[in-house]
């Protein structure tokens, strides 16, 4: 059989290999996608390998270089007011910032998308119940919920992930539900039912794959907001421990020295910006690759 078609195999981590091929194609063709992939890969590697790559312990204080100029060979980016190496702190900070940013949005996305899928697919009172609950969540100021969650569960990375991600559930639920409502009217959903598929199979095989495009876009937009939200919580002392380096915290701490040592604030800010840009470009590439129609029409 000459066909490369195979309905059983051809999956890596549950993702069809032809979709991975398409993604590689998209990246090869599209410069913006390439930039996005490079940025995201670079930052993720820096975060993962921070213990190996960082020149100093991010917590170690050394007051000697405090007097040294910022761009010395020993501490390329200088130190903060406690004499901690800024470059090392930024590398370690990437772990928390990227982790909380991605983790929180992932938490919000999984919860919200599931709610939206169920609400949109079943409609009726299920829809009313779920979406009104989401409305209630939305009506609370995000910060209040975050303070409440941290007050109950205490500080810590995972609690920050949940506290930040909680605020995004309603975004994902609403977007997904809207998509599902229109997809539900498509005949292929009815066709799947007539073939004998169960509700869960229909939801995840027929409906969900057709909702991913706007979800990916929303995901990449919210990662940026989540990283800033983590900074806000850290600033208020509700995030991770104050001494733990995160980009948001570094940015906040550097504020006091903005007139004398501007780079302490500016560099983490730039990093957040570049990461957000990279994730957005990465997300666009993902969306293009998964849209089988778009790939062909180009």
């Amino acid at each position: 059989m000459s066909s490369r078609f195979d309905t059983d195999g051809g999956r890596v981590f549950g993702i069809r290999t032809d979709l991975i091929e398409q993604f590689v194609d998209t990246v090869n063709r599209d410069l913006k996608a390439k930039i996005g992939v490079v940025i995201v890969t670079l930052f993720v590697i820096a975060a993962i390998l921070a213990p190996e790559l960082a020149p100093y312990d991010p917590m170690a204080q050394d007051f000697a270089p405090l007097q040294a100029p910022a761009l010395s060979s020993e501490t390329p980016l200088g130190t903060d007011s406690f004499g901690r190496d800024l470059l090392s702190r930024l590398m370690y900070g990437a772990r928390i910032s990227l982790g909380v940013g991605l983790g929180a949005v992932l938490f919000g996305a999984i919860t919200g998308v599931l709610l939206g899928l169920v609400a949109g697919f079943y409609g009726g009172w299920v829809d009313d119940l779920l979406m009104r609950s989401v409305d209630v969540m939305w009506a609370f100021p995000w910060l209040l919920i975050a303070i409440m969650l941290v007050a109950i569960f205490g500080q810590g990375v995972w609690n920050v992930v949940v506290a930040v991600g909680f605020a995004y559930i309603d975004d994902f639920a609403r977007i997904t539900r809207g998509e599902v409502l229109s997809i539900r009217e498509e005949e292929y959903v009815l066709a799947a039912e007539s073939v004998g598929l169960g509700d869960l199979e229909i939801i995840f095989e027929e409906v969900f794959p057709n909702t991913v495009a706007p979800i990916i876009v929303q995901f990449t937009v919210l990662v940026a907001r989540a990283m800033l939200a983590e900074a806000t919580l850290s600033f208020l002392g509700l995030g991770v421990k104050p001494s733990t380096p995160t980009w948001g915290a570094l940015l906040g701490q550097g504020r006091d020295f903005i007139t004398t040592a501007w780079w302490i604030s500016i560099i983490p800010g730039l990093l957040i910006m570049i990461t957000v840009l990279g994730i957005n470009l990465f997300g666009d590439a993902l969306r293009d690759a998964f849209d089988v129609r778009e790939v062909d029409s180009e």
């Binding site: 078609f5 073939v195 598929l197 199979e201 027929e206 057709n210």
Partner: peptide
């Protein structure tokens, strides 16, 4: 079994023709 009116809308745009026809074979 059912055959639908709109041949565009009745096929999931994200599945290949083979996957679409294979589904009933798998389900049953």
């Amino acid at each position: 079994q059912v055959i639908f009116q709109d041949p565009m809308s009745s096929l999931n745009p994200r599945k290949t023709a083979g996957e679409i026809v294979a589904k009933p074979l798998e389900v049953h």
